Each structure stands twice: as C-alpha cells, then as structure tokens.
Simulated scan of single mutants.
Amino acid sequence: MRETATVRLPGTELFVEAFGEEGDPVLLLVSGTGACMLAWDREFCTRLAAGRRRVLRYDGRDTGRSTTCMPGSPDYDLHDLASDAIGILDAFGVTQVHLVGLSQGGAVSQLVALAHPGRVASLTLISSSPGDADPEHPTLPPTPLETQVELHNAPWPQWSDQASVADHIVFLDRLHAGPGREFDEHSSRDRARRVVERAGNIESSLTNHYYVEPVAPWRARLPEIRVPTLVLHGAHDQLLPLEHGLALAREIPGAKMTTLPLGGHGLDPRDWAPVIGEILGHTHPAEEGLLPHAAVR
C-alpha cells in the first residue's frame, strides 16, 4: 500500500510518501544534502516494504514539494532537520523508528539518536560521517583534491532552464559515483528530470543546504548512541572517503560495518540487493516467523 501526506510542522510543511502495511516496523529514510525523496527510488522503497517494513520517504526542507526558503537564505540548521524527522513520526503515530540516513541524512539521523534515544530502534548510516570533533584540526580525510577542483570549476546551471539544471544534477551524480564502475547516465538523467519537474524551487533545493549554519560538533558524543547501528559505505566514495564510515563504525558502540566494494557516494541500483538485505536483516523484528509480502529480489 502506498499513500502520501503533507505534514505541517512549525515553520514548514513536509511532503511524505509511505509504502507498506501499517503495523510493520517503520523505516524513515532521510535524504542527503540538496536531495529530495527521489534519492530513495520507488522500487528501492517497495522492495524494502516487501520485506514487511513500513517505509517512509520525504522531501526535506527546501526540496521537492516541501516548504522552500529564498535561495541562499535557509532559516534552519541540522537540529531543525532532526526535529522534522521526529515531527513526521508524531504525525504518523510512530513511537519507535529504524532510521536510515544517506550522507547528510546520516548526520541528521545521528542527531536524532542523540536527542531522542527512546524514539530510535536502530540506525543505518549510508555514505555518512561523524564529522571532526575539532574542525580546526581535522583527523578525517577531506574530499579528494581532484574532486574539489571539479566541483569548484563546474559552472552553475541556468536555474530557469530545466535542461541545464538536469545536466548539472547528472554531473554531480557522475562525480559522486566514483571510479569503481561504469556510470549509468540513463538512470541518472531520468531521475534528474523528475527532480527538476517536481521541485518547488530548484535553486533553493540544490544550494540552500550548503548555506545552513554549522552546529556544534557531536563526534565526541557518538559513544552515547546505544542502538544497533549499521554503517554502509562505498569503497570508492569521492566525497566522504571510506575512513569516515570506518570512524562511525569504530566510535558507535557495537556498530557493524559493511563496505560496498564498487560503491561511490550514495546508492547505486547495482548495490540495492545487498543494501536491502543488510537493512532488512538489521531491522528484523524480535518476533519469529514473519514472511515477506512479496519476493525481495
């Protein structure tokens, strides 16, 4: 079963889509920087739901059909994004959730687990990072210089030209995919077109998360996280090198680390099968004997 809803919270409205059956364990999928809910492909969500999970994906602030701010002027920070996640759970009557965060969504998920430990049943952190405890003296490797140069030299799109913006999104996807495997431009371009078409303000979507004010580092608090944690990270991540995932797995007590040997930054469809298997195994309810609603490929 699939349904949509607009969740009204103080200062924002968030568009949410749900898959699966009520009563099944709930997964909340939290997207990364500048990414709307389409970062989690519909087929990916339905395959999770087939494994007897209630799956929620949503457009974060400034993305998709949710509330947008003027370009360059976001009125929120990461703590507000963490509060948004709790607001969605409240609106859907969810007391405990399995959080699945991608990139910046992984950072938001960590903050939710630290601020609301009783609401989180487990964490899955994909292509994410704990950040540095002291940003003035970083211990984690930065984005490789070659990638930084490509990002710096890339021209901004013409925001009024949908084709130009789609080209820019494909460029970013190609850069994030890394050198581990051949880039699937067809899938990237199809998603980019849909992202642009449904965005309330595509310039705000692709830029405002970079203007969000930084919050106090939380890496030193990672040992406070006591929920089962799964870390998934691409071996060829060109934005947050593998060491970021290894640090999460090392510093969150009992965390499990799985490296995607050909993966870059984000979720490649060719990694869906192992990722879905890992998430379903990680979030398996205590009751025995549950059968899937449909075959999970």
Results as ranks from 00 to 15, higher is better:
Pro155Met: 02
Val296Arg: 09
Glu13Lys: 08
Leu222Gln: 07
Thr12Glu: 10
Gly245Lys: 04
Leu125Ser: 02
Phe171Trp: 00
Pro241Leu: 10
Leu246Gly: 06
Pro292Phe: 15
His265Leu: 02
His176Lys: 02
Val170Lys: 02
Leu38Lys: 11
Arg61Ala: 15
Gly60Lys: 12
Ser187Val: 00
Gly101Leu: 01
Pro261Lys: 01
Val165Lys: 04
Phe171His: 02
Leu111Pro: 02
Glu278Met: 13
Gly118Arg: 04
His265Ile: 01
Thr12Gln: 08
Gly93Val: 14
Gly93Asp: 13
Ala115Cys: 00
Thr95Ser: 04
Gly101Tyr: 04
Gly266Asn: 03
Leu28Phe: 10
Asp190Lys: 01
Gly11Asp: 09
His233Pro: 05
Pro157His: 01
Gln148Ala: 15
Pro274Thr: 04
Asp77Leu: 02
Ile276Thr: 08
Pro25Asp: 07
Gly263Phe: 01
Val16Pro: 08
Arg181Glu: 05
Arg250Met: 10
Asn208Pro: 11
Ser31Arg: 05
Ala199Tyr: 10
Gln96Pro: 03
Gly23Ile: 02
Gln238Trp: 14
His236Glu: 05
Phe15Glu: 09
Phe44Ile: 11
Thr46His: 11
Ala255Cys: 04
Leu291Arg: 14
Ala163Ser: 07
Thr124Val: 14
Leu267Gly: 03
Ser66Asp: 07
Ala154Val: 01
Arg53Gly: 03
Val94Leu: 00
Leu28Thr: 07
Asp271Tyr: 14
Glu287Ala: 08
Gly106Pro: 01
Ser160Val: 08
Leu230Arg: 04
Arg119Pro: 07
Val7Pro: 07
Ala154Leu: 12
Ala216Pro: 09
Pro10Asp: 11
Arg2Pro: 00
His79Arg: 10
Ser128Asp: 05
Ser31Ile: 02
Val112Lys: 01
Asp75Cys: 13
Val7Trp: 15
Pro292Tyr: 15
Pro155Phe: 04
Val170Phe: 05
Gly200Pro: 07
Ile279Val: 15
His79Ser: 06
Ile169His: 00
Thr95Lys: 02
Cys36Gln: 14
Arg57Asp: 09
Thr95Arg: 02
Thr147Ile: 12
Gly72Ser: 11
Pro292Thr: 14
Gly254Asn: 03
Tyr211Gly: 04
Gly101Gln: 03
Arg47Met: 14
Ile126Arg: 07
Ile88Gly: 03
Asn153Gly: 06
Glu182His: 00
Glu288Asp: 13
Ala91Cys: 05
Arg61Ser: 15
Val30His: 05
Cys45Ile: 15
Glu136Phe: 13
Trp218His: 10
Leu38Cys: 09
Thr4Glu: 15
Val231Arg: 04
Leu102Val: 02
Leu145Ile: 08
Ser73Val: 02
Leu27Lys: 08
Arg8Asn: 13
Glu251Leu: 14
Pro144Val: 08
Ser66Ala: 07
Asp59Tyr: 06
Leu232Trp: 15
Gly234Ile: 09
Met70Gly: 11
Ala163Glu: 10
Leu222Lys: 13
Ala39Trp: 10
Ala121Glu: 12
Thr147Met: 12
Leu151Met: 12
Arg226Tyr: 04
Cys69Gln: 13
Lys256Ser: 03
Thr63Trp: 13
Pro241Gln: 06
Leu145Phe: 14
Ala255Gln: 10
